[in-house]
Design a protein around this nucleic acid. Structure first.
Length: 104
DNA sequence: GAAATGACAGAGT
DNA sequence: GACTCTGCCATTT
């Protein structure tokens, strides 16, 4: 476990239902801009059930990265009300979560 | 301690 | 507008 992972996990945990955050965003919020890849890496090893990793997507609304995993994420996001088309989030601007748009 | 891997991001074609 | 290539950071081996 590393402080970075804890930070990322905490941020992801703050993501409410129906909202999604990008890896780059999480990385930036974690204090490591550009470490988007590292964020995904942490998620991969993270088995925390409290962390809605399916709400974390790639930039541009792409579900991102890993084969079947992305499909599962798509289904979960759809169930939360997120408009997902194929492999990408449509209303990303609407569902894009930020520490300031927690509820407003 | 160094090299390779990996759920990404951005620019170019 | 979509796909491909390179670059970055942190973690793991």
């Amino acid at each position: 476990m590393t402080p970075f992972s804890t930070r990322v996990l905490s941020l992801v945990r703050r993501i409410p239902a129906g909202r999604v955050a990008t890896y780059g965003d999480i990385a930036r919020l974690a204090g490591h801009p550009g470490a988007a890849r590292a964020v995904g890496n942490v998620m991969r090893n993270s088995k925390w059930p409290d962390v809605p990793c399916h709400r974390v997507i790639a930039a541009g609304g792409r579900l991102g990265g890993y084969g079947g995993r992305a499909v599962l994420k798509r289904a979960l996001l759809l169930a939360e009300g997120v408009v997902v088309s194929g492999m990408r989030v449509r209303e990303l601007t609407r569902v894009h979560w930020t520490p300031k748009t927690t509820n407003k």
